[in-house]
């Protein structure tokens, strides 16, 4: 898992004068011999850097384009060829913040995402632990049942949820969304936490148990702290999906005041003309908090995305 550690260990080091055959594709820094080889390695390094730059540009460009469009006047937006340098305008942000309840919607999204994450962890972390650390009948079925919730197509469940919410007078309640979001939050947390708990040596827990700690004491005081990276990562992913969710939020929150940010973004598309600048400003407002968050926690996120992959 730890890339840096592995690569820092010079593969040729400690082997004295025995130089392994030259790998021409993947250069190994310690093995550069002749100046021709050195030049070739420099060239490969340059290509490598160029490749990385291409990846960065491709990944960033669409986001950059949206953000830049949100600061352009309509004329600059529609200009062909595109304008690359211009004096930014804040007019679209003014429109979005004035005409829609975007700030309120962002606050709604934030609270829903936060509560969803909290509940998913409360439910998913113990479940992941139970599946990872114990042998019992139906264990594999239980695991599959949890994970298969991730496979359900949300469109399918919108009408049933809508009708039951109507009967229970829950329509428009953020708790309704928080509860429904568990259908993807819990499976995600369970999937990741099973792998996380399995990667922790069993002896650590056994030592604690010998010392007289109860099962739950050991879980809370020993296992959860050890599995913290997985917990953080599950939380981040659940929060992302909850923040981004559209279908349920659209159908189950009728009140304009309690709508979530993605739903509000859609309202710009209804007119005869798409107000591109406003739409891009709204998009930027919705995406920027998540991007900042994602970049801040990227180390955890990278780890989280890969937990399911590594045993």
């Amino acid at each position: 898992m730890d890339v840096v550690f592995r690569r820092n260990k010079d593969p040729a080091g400690g082997k004295g004068g025995t130089t392994p055959p030259m790998d021409t594709r993947i250069p190994r820094p310690a093995r550069a011999g002749s100046s021709r080889d050195r030049r070739r390695i420099l060239l490969l390094d340059a290509l490598h850097a160029a490749g990385l730059v291409v990846v960065i540009v491709l990944a960033l460009f669409p986001i950059y384009w949206m953000v830049s469009a949100s600061f352009k006047t309509d004329n600059q937006l529609f200009a062909v060829p595109p304008v690359w340098l211009w004096k930014p305008t804040l007019a679209h942000y003014g429109t979005v913040l004035h005409d829609t309840n975007m700030m309120g919607a962002l606050a709604n999204s934030l609270s829903i995402a936060g509560l969803t994450t909290l509940l998913s962890l409360l439910l998913g972390v113990p479940a992941g632990y139970g599946i990872a650390r114990y042998q019992f009948r139906f264990r594999r079925d239980v695991w599959f049942w949890f994970v298969s919730n991730w496979m359900i197509i949300p469109v399918v469940l919108v009408i049933p949820y809508f009708l039951i919410a109507t009967k229970l007078h829950l329509l428009g309640s953020r708790w309704l969304l928080v509860a429904i979001y568990q259908t993807f939050g819990v499976p995600l947390a369970v999937w990741l936490m099973v792998d996380q708990f399995r990667s922790i040596p069993a002896e650590l827990e056994e030592v604690a148990r010998i010392d007289g700690t109860s099962v739950f004491g050991a879980f809370i005081r020993i296992m959860v702290p050890l599995a913290l990276p997985g917990v953080v990562v599950s939380g981040i992913l659940v929060a992302l999906f909850a923040w981004n969710e559209l279908l349920y939020a659209q159908a189950l929150i009728p009140s304009l005041a309690s709508r979530t940010a993605p739903v509000v973004a859609l309202t710009f598309l209804g007119g005869y003309e798409v107000p591109w600048g406003d739409v891009m400003a709204a998009g930027t407002l919705i995406v920027l908090p998540v991007l900042a968050f994602a970049a801040l926690v990227s180390r955890y996120l990278v780890r989280g995305l890969t937990l399911g992959a590594i045993k």
Binding site: V55, I56, A59, L60, P62, I63, W65, M66, A69, L240, W243, N244, L246, A261, P262, A265, L266, L269, V274, W276, V279, M280, G283, I286, V287, V290, L291, F293, A294, A295, S298, L301, V302, L305
Partner: peptide, 20 residues
């Protein structure tokens, strides 16, 4: 770090700037 950004982008918004 950069690679995390597309994943985190709200899909509704991806469609919106896609249309642009």
């Amino acid at each position: 770090v950069i690679l995390v950004l597309p994943i985190a982008t709200t899909p509704v918004v991806v469609g919106l700037f896609g249309a642009l």
